[in-house]
Amino acid sequence: MTRFVLRRLIALIAILFCISVGAFFLIHLLPGDPTVTILGPNDTPENRNALLKELGLNLPLWQQYLTWIWNVLQGNLGQSFITHQSVSKIISSAFPIDLELIILSQIMALGFSIPLAIASARRPNGLLDRASTTTSFGMLAIPPFILIVVLVLLFSIHLHIFPGPGSYVPFQQDPISNLHTMILPAIVLMVGSTTIYFRLLRADLIATLQQDFITVARSKGLSDRYIMWRHALRPSSLSLLASAGLNISGLVAGAFVVEYLLAIPGLGFELVNSIQQVDYLSVQSITLFVAVVIVLINFIIDFLFTVVDPRIARE
C-alpha cells in the first residue's frame, strides 16, 4: 500500500512538473506582447524596455521559469501584470464560485439521473426507458451555449424568472440573490452531466440485474426496491463515478463559456480574460492551480473507487 501511494505520488509530481513547464512555455513562446497591453501601442521603446526589466521579462526564459516555479513552491503565485492583483487573490475569489457551480450542478445531475436510471433499468425498453433514453440522446447534442441563449431568452427575457447576464452577486453579500443568479448556469451545466450519468448508470444497472446474485436475492423474496438500492446500485456505480470525476475536473475551468456569457467571475472567466490580456503570470499560475485541483479530484475519485469496490484496493 505504501509503495502504491509512493509511486502514485512520484507520478503526480512528474505530471505537475510537466504541466508547469507546458503552461510556462506555451504562453511565453506564443506571439503577443504584454507591454502593448499595459502601455498601449504608442509608447516609446525606452519605456517598453524599462517595463520588461521591471517585470523580469528581459531575462532568459529558463531563468524566468525557475524564478516563477521557485516562488510558486513558496506559495507566492505572483501578481497580475495588468491589475497588480495577486494571483492568489484572484484564485481565492474566483474558485469558490466554480465550487458553488459544480456542487449545485452535480447535486441536481445526480438527483435527477440516479432515480431516472433506476426507474428505466427496472423495465428496459419500457415506455419510460425509451422516452428517457431518446430524450437524453437529444440533450447530449445540445451545446451549452445554445442552451444558455435559449434559457436566457425564455426565463430572463420573457418570463423574468431568473436574472439575465451580468447580474452576479457574491454569496457573502447576499446569499439568496446569489443562489437565484446561480441556478440558470447550474442548470446549463447540469444538463450535460445528467445525460451522461443517466446513460452510464442505466446500462450498468441493466447488466448487473442479470447477474446471479440478483437472482438469488429475488429468490430469497427480497423486494425489488430493496434489491435495486442495496444490491444493484453499488456495483453498478463505478462508471458513473469515473465519469463524474471527468466531468467535475472538466468543470473546474471548463465552465468558461457559461461564465463568460453570464459574466460570472469564476476561474474560467478569469483565465480567458488573462489569456486575452497576455497576462503571463496569471495564465501560468491559474493553469497550474487548475491542474493541481484536477489531480486532487482524480485522487479522491480513485479513493472512492476503493470504497465502492474494496477489491480494487487489495489488488
Partner: peptide, 20 residues
C-alpha cells in the same frame, strides 16, 4: 499522451488561438 491529457486542453486551445 498522459501528460498531454492532464494539461487543461481548453486552456491550451484558447491560448494558442488567441495568439496565433
Amino acid at each position: 499522451s498522459y501528460v498531454m491529457l492532464a494539461f487543461p486542453a481548453l486552456v491550451a486551445v484558447i491560448a494558442i488561438v488567441a495568439f496565433w
